[in-house]
Design a binder for these strands. Structure first.
Lengths: 342, 342
DNA sequence: CTGTTAGCGCCTTCAT
DNA sequence: ATGAAGGCGCTAACAG
């Protein structure tokens, strides 16, 4: 019973044609109730399962969508993937996962692989804004394969995206720190070749500006998104005269490192120093000194990206429907920046 | 240029047969250098890309493997998936992700979907030990689709698995607590229909036994794997007379909850009370009061699972090669159970 | 070295 | 209501 049974096997068993079997299995109304029933029973008996590959080749639709992320083992991207999978599951789409590790070469390979695998859509969070991947992305568009950017987008006419308002996030975080009475606010930024980090930085600048505060060039540091980078950054910031008394970090991990270093130097948080991170990683609320952070609702982002994809697939023939959804980030105020919180 | 070009387009362009094109593209040695070169140039010119679907249908190999996990947005499973993806990437396999949410019905659906999609293998961490999925799993085996269990396995003859030695993990955690001078050690366990939790529990029991310690039935609680469950569990444990003075939790999240509650009640950790968790979630080391935990090396687990799969695919024709890899867990001693650590 | 043929499993026109 | 035929795109067996 290890052999796979096809519609021909069923046809032979019943002395009818494969076409009839196919129709019966697909509930074609032109098939008599009796043969339809018979076919289905025989299918059951022979343990028939439709070969999706054959269907896919014929129809040109694989019912697979590709999802490309820098890495899957980050809470943010994992949650997005969860959202995508959950939204697509009821529609019988499978999710193929690819990681770029922020490597553009890999990204291009991934897109090509997915295209060759005839996926019905590609959902991607790009590695950076460089233009090397323009060509392959154009290929996707030319092939009319639905393409959705999430979180990290490229600004391409006709291409949909789901992002959060990073500018607002940066603004809200900074305004909150200002409201806490801080004036010397440093900013730990990320790779400036990514729009998200630029936007968060811009939000920071605008908030400072709107409040009549001067931005100290030395207070702006570009760091990696990890604990050690935060420690290093805080070390150099605290050497400045005068040192900042607050930090808005574009990364929760860097924020954690900064907090560790600040405390290490005997400075009290939040009494003398405040920190706000970005991303609302699970650990930020677990800490005894919980960390204020900007939530990006990744689960929802994933679900919406999937929904946009679904709209796009169904409208494929009609006019191109570009849709750019921008989610609102939410500031979670915790102990690292306020005495009255948890 | 949105139309997909096939080998027939190339053949027509060059007035040769599709078969020759195919051979040239696949570097068949029987093809003359000149036509080979010509074909490749034309392919490039027409922007030809092989349709993997057609190849898959013909060869019966889709070059996709299915990975089934309870959820992707847990650090543990996400890391495993990362490992699998990284190991399979060089071998041109794509990874299709499915989530069960611990729902066996969903699990069965997922397996069927993957089978129908003609995946070349299934890597799965099952939802529980119940027998309802026996039938579909047998289908996988009958179809000779390589099947690998990771972390949560079923004991089936001929089926490979990659797990960690949960018994040893439970034993090591408990022995460590005993070494710290504790005698009344409670255990927060998980769903007993999963082998992993049973084994951790058994490890705990054996360590107690080996050290001549009595197990208090009231000290064994079955909890969910989240913070609130840990809080609730600790509350009831601390009401006991006498209360335990240490907890080995099968979940890091429950361990965190327990720690919060213990501290809440004014009991000092680690001076008066120790806690060891399981899983080595990222947050355990980030905490100010860092949490001792058992590491499961999920990244490695994923890579090994992928490697076992690769061996299996290649040996498909030869004898069935069952391989059961058991990884050694590692105890990370941190502040929650020791004064001399970080 | 290259062309012809056939088939992977399915569905869908076109007939009847 | 059903059958026959053809094709999705590719490759392998069989000719030459």
């Amino acid at each position: 019973m290890s052999e796979k049974t096809t519609i021909y096997d069923i046809a032979k068993e019943l002395n009818i044609s494969a076409a009839t079997v196919s129709r019966a299995l697909n509930n074609n109304p032109k098939i008599s109730k009796s043969t339809c029933k018979l076919v289905k029973e025989t299918a059951e008996k022979l343990n028939y399962k439709q070969n999706k590959l054959a269907l896919a080749l014929r129809s040109g639709r694989s019912n697979n969508v590709g999802v490309i992320v820098p890495r899957v083992d980050s809470n943010f991207f994992a949650s997005i993937i969860r959202g995508i999978e959950e939204e697509l599951y009821p529609h019988q789409y499978n999710v193929i996962i690819c990681q770029t590790h922020e490597d553009e070469k890999r990204e291009i390979e991934n897109i090509n692989t997915l295209l060759n695998a005839q996926v019905d859509g590609i959902l991607i969070s790009i590695s950076n804004m460089s233009t090397e991947n323009d060509e392959v992305i154009q290929r996707v568009i030319d092939k009319k394969v639905p393409l959705i950017f999430f979180d990290r987008r490229k600004n391409i006419k006709g291409v949909s995206s789901v992002t959060i308002n990073d500018f607002e996030g940066g603004y809200a975080a900074t305004q909150h720190l200002i409201n806490q009475g801080h004036k010397n606010i440093a900013h730990l930024s990320g790779n400036q070749s990514l729009e998200i980090f630029k936007n968060r930085f811009d939000g920071y600048k605008q908030a400072m500006l709107d409040n009549g505060l001067k931005i100290n060039e030395n207070h702006i540091l570009q760091t990696k998104s990890n604990v050690d980078a935060g420690i290093t950054a805080a070390k150099s910031l605290l050497k400045l005269i005068p040192p900042p008394n607050a930090i808005f970090s574009s990364s929760d991990f860097a924020a954690l490192g900064a907090i560790q270093e600040v405390k290490e130097q005997g400075i009290r948080i939040p009494e003398d120093f405040s920190v706000v991170g970005f991303g609302n990683e699970p650990f930020t609320k677990f800490m005894e000194l919980s960390i204020s952070s900007i939530d990006q609702s990744p689960l929802e982002m994933g679900k919406i990206a999937a929904k946009v994809f679904l709209e796009q697939v169904n409208n494929s023939e009609s006019s191109i429907t570009q849709k750019n959804v921008i989610l609102n980030p939410e500031l979670y105020i915790r102990k690292s920046s306020s005495r009255n919180s948890n």
